[in-house]
Design a protein around this nucleic acid. Structure first.
Length: 571
DNA sequence: GCCGTTTTCGGCCCGACTGTTTTCAGTCG
């Protein structure tokens, strides 16, 4: 029973309680714990009741439920709720504009159980007959069903950033004096975004016209004087909020979130006799505004250091901000090397020389060429003799383009945990990244043992994309992260943050855990072409969300120092 | 359901927009 499965059941309980119209704070407690479960670095199923109760938000009751789910695979309470409502009605709650009250009413009044039922009821005009509903609501539901059926759901950080940039540029051109900024999960650097939030400060209200009328818009979901939402062609929702210029700091804070961070922050504000909203920080007595123009002011007035957006997840950042011990987060400029790249020798699109020139152009001082090993036949993977010949050619180019090169390999970890190339070959290279590319269907224990065996091989320096996840396509294979992190720490093996936008693997939670256990982290591009080095910024974003400082990441070191810190060169 | 340098009971973040309403409930973020 992994954390995601536990979170799934708890969150379904929350949904069902909501449909029942239960106490909203009870619902929040369940949702809160579902969030905790899905982001927790440790395997909750392996914790006893006492350890569970040490986690804030988990009390006696929920600790018991988690234990029950861990041992039996489900909870009695959950089964009882599902007996009252068919599970298929939960799908209806995901429709835009349809919430728990509407679902409950549709179920009660019309016996609707599935989205298809609902669509038929709306087409028959039965929905509008219910008290509180009307023709517009009915049309809205049909539209939402249509969009749902063709929906794309969430979006990769990289794609969301491109769209946000386009919308911001378009608005900025029309309103040059306004300050227009992407906020929300995009500003926090989350690996995916549901919708895109943009904040405008100091523009007049005609910016809303410009926003809802521009040519990327497919449909206007809401149009107000300070808030509008549109659906762009391609299915991305974008929200624009407008605030006065002197509220910009408070609004930035408010709309950047996360929800959990904001709740904790407003709770703190209340405790200090303040109220915090998007217009400012106000004294409850007398309503005097004490901060609003900048985020720094708002945090400072609450006795806190300014918290970088990437840390705003209620994962300890408020305590650190109180004690003024927030980390100095790594930036893209801190990276001096890239340790995972491919060339035309296997499945890359550009030669080693062209890759070197591009890496130098991206400001890097060294680059490891790590083409694939033989079992990746599809990618024309290298056997021992080709690997060594390739290494010789790479070394001949070392320093030729103003950049130091390392002759390496991305060596497959075979299903049994042995390496895909002979030890003497791996020993003759400058750097070895070991990765899993096959037999993803192994169970948790097999996969864990497999990777542990790779870590024990003395020629392995780095484990690449540890969980194999493909964001929005497949979750990573099941693996005991904690066991691997501990082994990596013991053997001096570094763990990679793969910067490809669809990988970002390690993720933020795992990377933070690894660093806490003393594991060296590297940030690599996994570039397959010369224009791909820009993805390093996504890897850096993950590292920042993991609280990493430059000193936590090996490839911020100058070349010679970096080499001396590689596992193979340490003694 | 959780939590406690005000509390073991009584709190629990905050506001905008829409549709169906004549003052508000539901939804969303």
């Amino acid at each position: 029973m992994d954390n995601a499965a536990i979170a799934g059941i708890l969150s379904e309980i929350a949904d069902l309680l909501e449909i029942k119209g239960e106490n909203p704070f009870k619902i929040r407690a369940y949702r809160n714990v579902a969030d905790i479960a899905s982001n927790h670095p440790h395997h909750l199923a392996s914790l006893d009741e006492t350890s569970l109760r040490e986690i804030p938000g988990i009390g006696k009751d929920l600790a018991g439920k988690i234990r029950e789910i861990a041992t039996t695979g489900d909870s009695q309470f959950h089964r009882e709720l599902l007996a009252e409502f068919p599970p298929s009605i939960l799908e209806m709650m995901r429709l835009q504009g349809v919430g728990p009250k509407t679902v409950a009413m549709l179920h009660r009044e019309l016996g609707v159980q599935t989205i298809d039922d609902l669509q038929r009821a709306a087409l028959d005009g039965r929905v509008r007959a219910i008290k509180g509903m009307g023709p517009k609501k009915e049309a809205l539901i049909l539209k939402a069903i249509e969009e749902r059926k063709s929906s794309v759901g969430r979006h990769l950080l990289s794609a969301a950033q491109d769209i946000a940039n386009a919308v911001v540029a378009l608005l900025q051109e029309r309103f040059p004096a306004a300050t227009i900024t992407p906020v929300g999960s995009l500003r926090r650097g989350c690996d995916t975004c549901g919708d895109i939030d943009i904040l405008a400060a100091g523009a007049d209200q005609t910016i809303m016209d410009a926003f809802v009328e521009h040519n990327l818009v497919e449909r206007v979901l809401a149009r107000g004087d300070t808030k509008s939402s549109v659906l762009l062609r391609g299915g991305v929702q974008v929200d624009l909020r407008l605030v006065p210029a002197d509220s910009r700091g408070a609004a930035l804070q408010y709309f950047t979130g996360s929800k959990a961070h904001n709740i904790a922050l407003r709770d703190r504000a209340i405790g200090l006799g303040f109220k915090l909203n998007e217009y400012g920080l106000f004294r409850i007595e007398g309503d005097e505004r004490v901060a609003s123009a900048t985020e720094e002011e708002v945090y400072e007035a609450l006795g806190l250091a300014w918290v970088p957006p990437e840390l705003r997840e209620d994962r300890g950042e408020l305590d650190a901000a109180t004690d003024r011990v927030l980390p100095t987060l790594i930036t893209r400029e801190d990276l001096r090397g890239d340790l995972h790249t491919h060339s035309t020798e296997t499945d890359g699109r550009n030669s080693v020389g062209d890759m070197a020139i591009a890496a130098r152009g991206s400001g890097l001082e060294y680059m490891a060429v790590t083409d694939h090993s033989q079992s990746l036949a599809m990618a024309n993977g290298l056997d021992e003799s080709r690997a060594l010949a390739h290494a010789a050619r790479i070394r001949a180019l070392d320093g030729q383009h103003g950049i130091r090169l390392l002759a390496g390999i991305e060596c497959d970890i075979r299903p049994d945990g042995t390496m895909d190339l002979a030890d003497d070959c791996l020993a003759a290279l400058d750097i070895v990244v070991a990765s899993v590319h096959s037999a993803f269907n192994q169970d948790r224990q097999q996969m864990t043992d497999r990777i542990l065996r790779a870590i024990e091989n003395p020629h392995v320096d780095i484990i690449g994309h540890l969980t194999g996840r493909m964001i929005l396509k497949r979750s990573g294979y099941p693996v005991d992260i904690e066991a691997i992190v501990n082994a990596a720490a013991r053997h001096g093996v570094a763990l990679e943050i793969n910067s490809q936008a669809y990988r970002l693997d390690l993720n933020d939670v795992h990377a933070r855990l690894a660093r806490q256990r003393g594991v060296n982290i590297v940030i690599s591009s996994d570039s397959h072409s010369r224009d791909a080095f820009s993805v390093l910024r996504w890897g850096v974003m993950v590292a920042r969300r993991a609280w990493l400082q430059p000193g936590d990441v090996l490839n911020t070191l100058p070349f010679d120092e970096f080499r001396s810190q590689l596992r193979r060169n340490r003694r």
